[in-house]
Amino acid sequence: MPEINLSTAFFIGLGSLTIVASLGTILSRSPVTSALFLVLNFFALGGIYLLLEAQFIAVVQVIVYAGAIMVLFLFVIMLLNLEDEQRLTERYDVKKGFAILFAGLLLVEVLYVVGLKTPAIAPRLGTVAAEIGTAKYIGQQLLTEFLFPFEIISVLLLGAIVGAVVLAKKNFGPERATAKTTL
């Protein structure tokens, strides 16, 4: 029986909140409720990051995901006017039953192997965890050891921007004379 100190108690609380929020995200009928549950999920995850002394990630998680991205998400949901989501609910059939059965079996197997057969991982000693999580340390690492990935990721962003413009721009080059889709 592991001793229950404050951080374990916090972890259990935040962890169960994360699970409940994830379930709420996929189970709630209305997309807006779903999105709000997701926000809650992000906040709980941010808390877990804080417990792990990753302050920078925790703040970024809340600002970027819960803040910026989710607001966009909610805007899109409201603009799209997804009222008849009821129609999207799928019916269960034999195939799906089998899929659930096998997925469940796999889950049990994985839990068995991971939970019972894996020896507990010894905590790594080394750089003090509290230092690793700070913005200063991350910035230093990014501009020294991880300089190359940090720089080359700009090519990825460039590609994503060009791709998004190509796919989303309304009038692009000459209009196709006859829209031909043979289905």
Binding site: G159, V162, G163, L167, R176, A179
Partner: peptide
Amino acid sequence: VALYTLAGMLRKDVR
């Protein structure tokens, strides 16, 4: 990411 875009280049084609 680049390949996803290339796959959708025929923007007016459902397929």
